[in-house]
Design a protein around this nucleic acid. Structure first.
Lengths: 349, 349
DNA sequence: ATGAAAGCGCTAACAA
DNA sequence: TTGTTAGCGCTTTCAT
């Protein structure tokens, strides 16, 4: 294999193979059958390309074809079990379709989110998946102007097809389970179920709050405003709020509905400061699954959102010629404490 | 904002602004100062571009400039705390430099790994980071042929600069701590420290085994071959091996050095089948950190690899004009049981 | 202070 | 069965 300074192009290969650039292009891209190029020549071209260490310039091909062969996805953060599972599924389906996945994280910042979408548009990706959108309207605006197909996942948007988790159902299941398991004492404040974490304004959290509220109300225990502490996703806030709640009640509450793994990290951050046994009288549930969180010192009920199913359904939708602007809901699963669930990629470690 | 079928190009903007394409290009790309284009014209062009919803075609720009503005990274899996933290750091540093990160996972398959590297080369990324390379030699070969700069992270390669974790040191620290905490009974088989998980052939695991072996040997307890169970990364194998070990010993061993979070998931998968208290006489350590794993029913000593530091150092290296082909080691940290560590992106939930 | 024109590497329409 | 040619949208030299 010769390695000159410059990278080989189809012109170089054409010269060596005594063929024209278009023949080389066809031979290498697989479109040679329609062009009825002799198998012998194709073989020769392939061999020479191999020898020269040729690799196609996708920028040139993309420019010519007005497509890039990439699919983009925006997620809030990589460093999160829920979203990184999505990334894994997103990538796996992309590859099945011969597309290159480009995944970027917005840090839940709407400005960054828009910048990323702009960038993906500039790179002419074929499709944009937006997971956990903070500003879906702005995104649809950008995409429409650029004629870019897109789909929302996990949080819905009004201007494009959306695939989300059935948060209402999941929250109902978890709330009911916690309620059934709660041990009441004789402190009315403490004997209640509290909801902690998430942003009340976002669709997922608000649906979960609805589910939480409805189950409690149906049980004759409509929640007071102070039972719902939507303090955001960062662990630190959840830690402070848990501490504050405990000092307000004089003890941990009888039940705690934790709205995300990151909030749960914060809750744990407070728990580690307490003497053992402090949580024996608290029933705990977390919306989202983590195998280690499933096996803490105390039992934790967990809702596993089907991130793989979400992405699969999203791909299924965009495969249609004209995906409808509708919201599809995928059912989550309630996992009993101490359940290990391996997921579709569990074999890869 | 008009939205015709076609996307606006600099030619469209040029026509509207009564300027030439080159002027528009300069005005929009920021190189207009050197060209001494009047501020008035630049303003006009900017306004029109905005109105038209213009966004640059990066494929065209990339083709012309022979660069793409993207940096590539290959990781084994997304769905893993260690690697997804790396992704987060990788992305954050990329953005600081105005580059678009493209991250792909190989599923630890050398063939897939090579395919990804090929693809990144085809897209003319500026640099390739390869984390946890399964076949570094092949990668360097591909990259050299394409004149592509690259760097290895987490596992070293002989043909390019490498930034890895000081696995020997980390393993020594963890082994020593476990040894100090072990309670011996009078079953010589059971009273030993076992190493489980990882691939003996890969650099990280072999260095950790060296550290493990050296500490035990220095303590006068050189390990027997059956104390080292390098059964790979998938949870399932680790689960089976843990079960097998227990039935071989008649009980869980006095100490267990678990070589990765995924192996630890498998170990847990076995533990959940045991009656409570079964692990009271076992000291457990895990190479890699997870906040939930840090707060299980039993104490777990954890080694936190500095993934952020690894990536930071890698970027620092490639910023130099001629990065040396050398291996740099970054120190990990030993975390006591029940420690919550937030990481550099902890605020983003 | 600005415009004209060439060309990056590829594919597709049209010729032959 | 294969070659010629135009052009994708941008940047950059060279003119003016």
């Amino acid at each position: 294999m010769t390695t000159p300074g410059r990278k080989a192009t189809i012109f170089d290969i054409a010269k060596l193979a005594e063929a024209s650039p278009s023949t080389v292009s066809a031979a290498l891209s697989g479109s040679w059958k329609e062009r009825r190029i002799s198998e012998r020549k194709v073989e020769l071209i392939r061999r020479i390309a191999e020898e020269q260490g040729y690799s196609i310039n996708m920028q040139a091909r993309g420019l010519r074809q007005a497509r890039s062969g990439m699919v983009g996805m925006v997620i809030p953060v990589h460093d999160n079990r829920y979203f990184s599972s999505m990334s894994q599924s997103f990538e796996s389906f992309a590859r099945e379709r011969g597309l290159v996945p480009v995944i970027a994280s917005s840090m839940r910042d709407p400005v960054e989110e828009r910048r990323i979408v702009q960038t993906l548009i500039s790179y002419a990706v074929e499709y944009i998946f937006v997971a956990g959108a903070t500003d879906p309207v702005a995104i649809t605006e950008l995409c429409t102007a650029a004629n870019m197909r897109h789909i929302f996942v996990d949080l819905p948007g009004p201007g494009a097809p959306s695939v989300i988790s059935d948060n209402y159902l999941g929250a109902r299941m978890l709330t009911q389970t916690l309620l059934d398991g709660m041990k009441r004492g004789n402190n009315p404040q403490r004997d209640r179920l509290y909801f902690i974490g998430g942003v009340a304004g976002d669709h997922a959290t608000s649906r979960r709050i609805e589910g939480f509220r409805d189950v409690l109300t149906e049980a004759g225990l409509p929640p007071a405003p102070d039972q719902i502490i939507a303090c955001g996703y960062p662990p630190r806030r959840a830690m402070q709020e848990t501490a504050a709640l405990q000092s307000r009640l004089g003890a941990l509450p009888a039940g705690l509905f934790v709205n995300s793994l990151t909030a749960f990290e914060g809750v744990l951050g407070h728990f580690v400061t307490l003497p053992p046994g402090s949580f024996d009288a608290t029933v705990i549930g977390c919306y989202d699954y983590d195998p280690f969180a499933a096996y803490l010192q105390f039992p934790v009920h967990m809702v596993r959102q089907d991130s793989h199913g979400l992405i699969e359904e999203a791909y299924r939708l965009i495969d249609r010629p004209h995906p409808e602007t509708a919201v599809r809901e995928v059912e989550p699963t309630l996992l009993p404490p101490r359940t290990i669930w391996a997921g579709p990629f569990g074999e890869h470690g």
